[in-house]
Design a protein around this nucleic acid. Structure first.
Length: 812
RNA sequence: GCCCGGGUGGUGAAAUGGUAGACACGAGGGACUUAAAAUCCCUUGCUGGUCAAACGGCGUGCCGGUUCGAGUCCGGCCCCGGGCACCA
């Protein structure tokens, strides 16, 4: 019998597939072609580390299986791949290995594409995208300009997240628990002028659309939380002896009578506006400075409240007209609401802590059985209003409405979501295509009134090429290394022709990946970011599979960018990904795979030892795909045996060429199960169904037709071996475009089944019964059993529960 | 603290409210072999019982409930993994 030489077979078919182009869809004809387009997308990798690890492969194979399934179902599947190679991650790696990022990118590219080929995915290789490639980032820059044109890109001095180790600004979404997402250094706040995108303008739509898109629920929940909508009231507090007011946002206006003091964020403008009225201004200034220098983590770690009173000014509670003190404290955030709050210590935990520490009055206004004196913690719950004048006796809900109207408050909505800070003070990214002219700025000239002096680079001048420079390392001077490259930044003002300066920051990597799915099918179009006719046929993406860690980064940014393009009339859909599924995390010995832990598994050696087909199938077999699991060598051997057995059975089938179908039921059962399981990404049970099927048909006289059906079911998981056996059986066309098997429900039904006989819900016997047996016959049959007779023992049968084709239960 | 997952044999896991542990790994036993590897067959939740069995009891993190019947539904708790976190 011929030996199963997987490395030869896999190499052979990978070559054949490339040659025949079976994974290249007809992008241009798309919908007019016989096969319907299906855009099957997976998240492209950062080519930064030593190569793909088995966790990447897990994600890609899981996505590929779905794509292969759809292709066999008759869709024209587009499954592109590329490299998200711009950005800090890749740059840091290049620095670490002492290479220039550009040179390193070429090395990584080769290695990654080779590895990606080895895993046997049905990639559409002709449409690769590398984000660091000028003919790609040219359009990333164009995207920036489109944002700018619509007033969605702006530059502003603001407190931003700064990573002292990466020496750059980070977006809110890139700060994880007060630390840098990439290097885990503590992030500090810095006042800098930065480019941002107004993603907050789309907060409502980003939230609302979540209700109708077919995405993994956990990702939708993460986005909902991140966007963080809360409904409340804006109330103005008068400042004594002043015409100025202090505005607050609160979700609990009903507790207004309990507001015994106010707090503003250290950055609040009231501090400088009342500089001369604040008698302890020096002390206040000291506090403001200290809190600014605190790292995010220090603020988070230390929940002990700090603050300082703004002595000399008071606010007036509009409900009871009492004068109350104003504090500055860093537990109030400048970026949320109005940056100021009314503090109700009796009914807010944070205010309670602060009031206790600073000895401030606590007034209970929602009845909860405690008095203001006996309260030991803030009461957040519902109740009837007390100590609240006319509001007494009202419910929380009624009081909210009444008091808001009474004090002239405004019902508003606040979002937790912040604008997307886009500038990065690094080298390896797409230069932001903007030009600043001081002369024009002085005259108030520029493309946008609120930002004098700024001009977007002309489209014909794109790309603004990233110059190849020796000094590419971050300098830590709040500016990019490009700020020292005169030939890069020195330009002529496009309007007044005076000397002008090009923006030297580069854009966040997440801008590169926010629109790449639009580029893939249109890579051949050199004149546009995307080709309208192709885009109409192929987008939005039908199925997107990727990691849940991108819930509030890439997946949110992509939705935002898509919405902007839709509103601009550039595309005709609003959501980029019709379906999104988050795969689980592949871990190793209970821990996340990471280089620092030294538990990264390289797939190459496994492919070498067992073959890609075995590794693919094993990865999908070890646990439910959407749950993830622990990668161990142990299970591999089981799958390797299974694949070997398929090979041996294949050889017998080829030799004997049986025509008579003898295994129909086993095969049809497998068709049903595998079809349903792949559609719902339950690959582990699909594989188990194939194993059960093989166990049944092995050793029997399997017909060629039956075995072919089996191969087709296995093909998405093990594309090479199935293709080899398929072709040895004499098929000329590839198995991967051979169609998906259907089953005949009649052939699955078995004539007999095991009738379970229970007494009081306990299984007491089983008996072989005819399918479709009625209650009476089942009863007679069951009562005739010796064991049942014994258990019933002449007791009265009170009730009989009969579930057709399953159980009969006697209640005695 | 809040929001998601999850807790089932020695292990990975499976189970429309209807025989818990499919499938696989591991382990034990056997066949083949001079031997080993590979392959094939049998056993394998715990426990009582017995030479063996028949036949029982107990079992899905814990406590309670609904139901003829609960891993699955409801209420309350504990533990593990992940995310968010002073968002007013």
């Amino acid at each position: 019998m011929k030996k199963y030489d997987f490395s030869k077979i896999e190499k052979k078919w990978q070559g054949e597939w490339k040659k025949s182009g079976i994974y290249e869809p007809s992008l241009k004809s798309g919908k007019t072609a016989k096969r319907k387009p299906f855009y099957n997308l997976m998240m492209f990798p950062y080519p930064s580390a030593e190569g793909l690890h088995v966790g990447n492969m897990y994600a890609f194979v899981g996505s590929d299986i779905y794509g292969r399934f759809k292709r066999m179902e008759g869709y024209d599947v587009f499954e592109p791949i590329g490299l998200d190679g711009f950005g800090i991650h890749s740059e840091n790696y290049a620095i670490k290995v002492g290479m220039h990022p550009l040179a390193q990118s070429k090395i990584s590219e080769k290695r990654f594409y080779k590895q990606l080929e080895m895993i046997g995915n049905g990639f559409s290789w002709n449409e690769r995208v590398e984000t660091y490639n000028p003919n790609y980032y040219r359009w990333t820059q164009w995207v920036f300009i489109e944002m700018w044109k619509r007033g969605l890109a702006y530059r502003k001095k603001q407190a931003v997240n700064w990573c002292p180790s990466c020496k750059t600004v980070l977006a809110d979404e890139q700060v994880v628990g007060g630390a840098c997402e990439r290097c885990s250094s503590k992030v500090i706040k810095k006042e800098l002028e930065q480019w941002s995108f107004r993603i907050t303008r789309y907060a409502d739509k980003l939230l609302k659309n979540l209700d109708h898109i077919d995405w993994s629920e956990r990702v939708k929940i993460a986005q909902r939380n991140w966007i963080g909508k809360s409904e409340g009231t804006e109330i103005e507090f008068k400042i004594s002896n002043s015409t100025k007011t202090l505005k607050v946002f609160t979700t609990r206006p009903d507790t207004l009578f309990g507001a015994t003091y106010m707090v503003v964020a250290p950055e609040h403008e009231i501090i400088s506006n009342f500089k001369f009225q604040i008698s302890n201004y020096n002390e206040v200034e000291k506090y403001v400075k200290a809190s600014r220098e605190k790292s995010e983590e220090e603020r988070v770690e230390n929940k002990e409240k700090t603050g300082v009173e703004l002595k000399g000014i008071k606010a007036i509670n509009p409900a009871n007209k009492k004068e109350i003190p104003i504090f500055a404290a860093d537990y109030v955030l400048s970026g949320y609401g109005t940056g100021a709050i009314m503090a109700v210590p009796a009914h807010d935990e944070r205010d309670f802590d602060f009031a206790k520490k600073f000895n401030l009055p606590i007034v209970v206004v929602i009845s909860n059985g405690k008095t203001s004196e006996s309260l030991t913690e803030a009461y957040i719950g519902d109740g009837e209003l007390v100590n609240s004048g006319e509001l007494n006796g009202l419910s929380v809900e009624d009081a909210k409405r009444k008091i808001t109207n009474y004090v002239g408050g405004k019902f508003t909505t606040q979002f937790r979501l912040r604008d997307w800070v886009l500038s990065r003070q690094r080298y390896w990214g797409a230069p932001i295509p903007m030009i600043y002219c001081e002369a024009c700025a002085r005259l108030g000239m520029g493309e946008q009134k609120e930002m004098p002096g700024w001009y977007a680079e002309k489209e014909k001048n794109l790309p603004v090429l990233l110059p190849k420079v020796k000094e590419f390392r971050p300098k830590g001077k709040d500016e990019s290394p490009l700020a020292s490259v005169k030939s890069f930044y020195k330009v002529q003002c496009p309007v007044c022709k005076n000397d002008a300066r090009r923006e030297t920051d580069v854009s966040d990597t997440f801008l590169d990946s926010a629109w790449y799915f639009l580029r893939y099918p249109s890579v051949s179009d050199t004149k546009h970011a995307w080709n309208n006719s192709i885009t109409k046929q192929w987008l939005p993406v039908n199925m997107y599979i990727g990691g849940a860690e991108h819930s509030v980064l890439h997946l949110l940014y992509s939705r935002f960018v898509t919405m902007v393009f839709k509103d601009a009339g550039l595309i005709d859909f609003e959501e980029p990904f019709t379906r999104f599924r988050a795969h689980g995390l592949l871990i190793k010995e209970g821990a996340k795979m990471s280089k620092s832990k030294g538990n990264v598994v390289n797939p190459d050696e496994y492919i070498k030892r067992f073959g890609a087909d075995t590794l693919r199938t094993n990865l999908m077999f070890l646990a439910p795909f959407e749950q993830g699991g622990d990668f161990r060598d142990a299970g591999l051997i089981g799958v390797a045996r299974f694949i070997e057995r398929v090979w041996r059975l294949g050889q017998t089938v080829i030799e004997k060429k049986n025509k008579k179908p003898l295994c129909e039921r086993a095969i049809h059962k497998a068709v049903k199960k595998v079809t349903e399981d792949i559609e719902s990404l339950q690959y582990n049970t699909a594989i188990s169904a194939l194993m059960i099927c093989l166990n049944e048909i092995e050793g029997k006289e399997v017909s060629v037709k039956e075995f072919e059906l089996f191969l087709q079911l296995l093909a998405p998981f093990a594309p090479h071996i199935t293709e080899e056996l398929w072709s040895e059986l004499g098929n000329k066309k590839s198995i991967h475009i051979s169609g998906w098997p259907t089953y005949d429900p009649k052939k699955i039904i078995e004539e007999n089944f095991m009738l379970v006989v229970q007494i009081n819900g306990k299984v007491r016997a089983t008996v072989d019964a005819r399918r479709g047996i009625n209650e009476n016959d089942a009863k007679t049959m069951a009562l005739g059993l010796e064991t049942i007779k014994k258990f019933i023992n002449n007791s009265e049968i009170k009730k009989v529960v009969f579930v057709p084709n399953r159980i009969i239960n006697f209640v005695v």
